[in-house]
Design a protein around this nucleic acid. Structure first.
Length: 107
DNA sequence: GGCGTGACTGGAT
DNA sequence: GATCCAGCCACGC
């Protein structure tokens, strides 16, 4: 079955700003997945969200955005886990996030 | 303008 | 559980 990909992004910069705005609403100790953000915005997709995070470079709480399986993205894996742990985010084996408890329900 | 790549995901194996 | 595979899309070469 094909993944439920969403509507195409009209303006990527505007899309990225929307992504940052959503990420900014996530409280410390909680996380959301790339797919959650894309679904919440109703446009783009997980990879568009990931690209937006890659270009923000610390301007937002990028470490609160993880994969759907609870494992942080590779390029920032170690640092992300460190930041999450310091915020009190529930982890499993110290290497992945406990999505069942840490997932933040987007409005 | 064509082609490979990737901070992804859901389903199959 | 871990791995593989197909599909989307912006970006760099």
């Amino acid at each position: 079955m094909r993944p439920p990909y969403l509507n195409p992004v009209v303006d990527f910069e505007e899309f990225a700003e929307s992504v940052y705005d959503v990420v900014d609403t996530i409280p410390a100790g909680r996380v959301v997945t790339y797919g959650d953000i894309a679904e919440h915005l109703g446009q783009g997709g997980p990879r568009r969200v990931a690209r937006a995070m890659a270009m923000c470079q610390g301007a937002v709480a990028w470490h609160r955005v993880i994969r759907s399986n609870g494992v942080p993205a590779v390029p920032v894996r170690a640092r992300q886990l460190e930041l999450l742990a310091s915020e009190g985010t529930p982890l499993v084996d110290g290497s992945r996030v406990d999505l069942g408890r840490a997932r933040w329900p987007l409005p």
